Amino acid sequence: MEEKVGAAVELVWRNDELTDPPGTRPDGMGDEHRMTCEVLECDAPHRLAISWGSTGGVTFTLREQGDEVLLTITHHRVTDPAVLLNVSAGWHSHVDVLEAKLRGTAATPHWVNFVRLRGDYMGRLAG
């Protein structure tokens, strides 16, 4: 992607390819999903903000913490509870895969983790 405000960004999810094995894909989840977003802010390598369809945006911030880096993902303006559950579990499960890869460990099968996390977030949001 171009590192400039206004640039298009195409996100492509092929979640069955994230882990081996991937686990069983939940009903209603396709084998591929695509979304075209727009760069709203870019301060490489510290901060990136992108649009998210017609319902808000996502900001990614990197900050050094000792000998590690803290990634903060802020997803703005998700109002539909069903979408909020999938978005929350989705970001969390993808970050879990990223962390395992960076640490050189095996990630929990993606869909197993996603389903568990969606249940966790359902409990959090119900409270």
Score class of each variant (00 low, 15 high):
M1S: 06
M1K: 00
M1A: 14
E3F: 12
K4M: 10
K4F: 04
K4D: 13
G6D: 14
G6M: 03
A7G: 11
A7E: 14
V9F: 13
V9Q: 01
V9R: 01
E10Q: 08
E10L: 09
E10V: 15
L11N: 14
V12F: 02
W13E: 13
W13K: 02
R14I: 11
D16W: 00
E17C: 09
D20L: 08
D20N: 08
D20H: 13
P21C: 10
T24D: 15
R25M: 10
P26S: 08
P26K: 01
D27C: 07
D27T: 15
M29I: 15
G30V: 03
D31N: 06
D31R: 01
D31K: 01
E32D: 11
M35V: 10
M35E: 15
T36Y: 07
E38S: 01
E38H: 05
E38R: 04
L40W: 07
E41V: 11
E41C: 06
E41L: 13
C42I: 08
C42G: 02
D43F: 11
P45L: 14
P45C: 12
H46N: 10
H46F: 15
R47Q: 11
A49R: 05
I50H: 00
W52G: 08
G53L: 04
G53T: 05
S54F: 05
S54D: 14
S54A: 05
G56N: 06
G57I: 14
V58C: 05
T59C: 08
T61L: 14
T61H: 06
L62N: 08
R63F: 07
E64S: 01
E64K: 00
Q65D: 15
Q65P: 03
G66F: 03
D67P: 07
D67I: 03
E68G: 06
E68I: 12
V69S: 01
L71C: 04
I73Y: 07
V78T: 02
D80V: 05
D80C: 06
A82V: 10
A82H: 06
V83Q: 04
V87D: 15
S88Q: 08
W91V: 11
W91M: 12
H92V: 09
H92W: 03
S93F: 03
S93A: 15
E99K: 03
A100E: 06
K101T: 14
L102E: 14
R103H: 07
T105K: 02
T105V: 14
A106P: 00
A106D: 12
A106C: 05
A107T: 13
P109L: 03
H110A: 09
H110Q: 03
W111Y: 15
W111I: 15
V112P: 00
V112A: 03
V112Y: 03
N113V: 08
N113S: 13
F114S: 06
V115N: 06
V115H: 04
R118S: 00
R118F: 00
G119N: 10
D120I: 12
G123L: 07
R124K: 00
A126W: 05
G127E: 15
